[in-house]
Every structure is written in C-alpha cells, then in structure tokens.
Amino acid sequence: MNTMSIDAVTVRSATSVADARENTRNFLDSLRQPPIAAEAADTVVLVVSELVTNALRHGGGTCTLNLTTHPDSIEVAVHDSSPQTPRVRTPDLTGGTGGFGWPMVNHLARTTAITHQAAGGKTVTAFLPR
C-alpha cells in the first residue's frame, strides 16, 4: 500500500492579497518531492490572488486560505463569511470594474466547487494541475 503525505498550510484572516500571494509562494517553494514547475506555481498564485481578492471584496473583509498538495494537483480553498456565490459577469472592457476573475479561475482550474458552510459563509475551492 502506497501512502503519500499531503502538505498543507492555512493562512487565517488574510487581510492582504499580497500576503496571500507571499504565503502561497512560500508554500509552493517548500514542496520538495516533486517540486512544482514555475509555470504551475505562477498559475496557483494567480488563482489565489483572484479568490482572495474576491473574498476580501465581497465576503466580509477577511478570509481563510488553505493550500493542499495532492500527488497530481494543488488544492486552493478560500473561506469567507458571505453566503453569496461567485457569479459570472460580463467583463467590463471600458470601465475597469472587473468581471474577468471567476471565468479565468474556471478556465485555469481542473475543477472548481463552492461549498456553503453550516456555520455560515462558503468555501470556494479550485484544483489546479501540479
């Protein structure tokens, strides 16, 4: 029977997207066997940045970021206190008000999920290729 350890990190009460990106880079840099490729790491950081930005902007101002590595994927999970799910908006090409993030996350991830928590809020999860 083969067992594989799963590396994980939790960042509580992320209040800065820059902090979330830095913690993510540190986590990814700590992966040894096998290390994550630079392009895959950049993709994970981009998805973390988007999900944390959305959680801070629309989810109550704080969030929890969980990163877990699996043999063939990196799991990014962001919990916030808002029950409102992300929605696809028509991207604003002239006014700069966004609309690009959630479609981008869904394009980059193998799969995404939104789980509503009994205690309130939700967790948005994205699985990205390792």
Rank of each mutant, 00 (worst) to 15 (best):
N2P: 03
N2Y: 04
T3I: 05
S5R: 12
I6G: 10
D7A: 13
A8V: 05
V9I: 15
T10V: 15
V11Q: 15
R12I: 04
R12L: 15
S13C: 07
S13A: 13
T15H: 14
T15V: 12
A18Y: 14
D19A: 15
E22W: 12
N23Y: 13
N23L: 10
N23S: 14
R25Y: 13
F27C: 13
L28N: 11
D29C: 09
S30A: 15
S30K: 07
S30E: 13
L31D: 11
R32Y: 14
P34I: 08
P35G: 11
P35N: 07
A37R: 04
A38E: 09
E39M: 01
A40N: 05
D42N: 05
V44Y: 08
V45M: 08
V45K: 05
V45F: 09
V47P: 07
S49G: 14
S49W: 03
E50Q: 07
E50V: 02
L51I: 02
T53G: 12
N54T: 06
L56R: 05
R57D: 13
R57Q: 10
R57S: 12
R57G: 03
R57L: 03
G60F: 03
G60T: 04
G61V: 02
C63I: 03
L65S: 11
N66T: 10
L67Q: 11
L67P: 08
T69M: 06
P71S: 12
D72V: 02
I74R: 06
I74M: 11
V76S: 14
V76R: 12
V76Y: 13
V78H: 07
H79Q: 08
H79K: 03
S81D: 01
S82Y: 07
P83N: 12
T85C: 02
T85K: 01
R87N: 09
V88G: 06
V88K: 14
R89I: 08
R89C: 13
D92M: 03
D92L: 04
L93A: 08
T94P: 01
G95V: 04
G95S: 10
G96T: 02
T97C: 12
G98M: 10
G99E: 11
W102M: 08
V105E: 12
V105K: 01
V105G: 08
N106G: 09
N106I: 02
L108M: 09
R110I: 04
R110E: 09
T111F: 03
T111H: 07
T111P: 01
A113D: 10
I114V: 15
H116G: 00
H116F: 00
H116R: 04
H116E: 02
A118V: 01
A118D: 09
A119Y: 00
A119C: 02
G120S: 01
G120P: 00
K122M: 05
K122G: 00
V124I: 15
T125N: 03
F127M: 10
F127E: 09
L128M: 09
P129G: 12
P129E: 12
R130F: 14
R130Y: 11
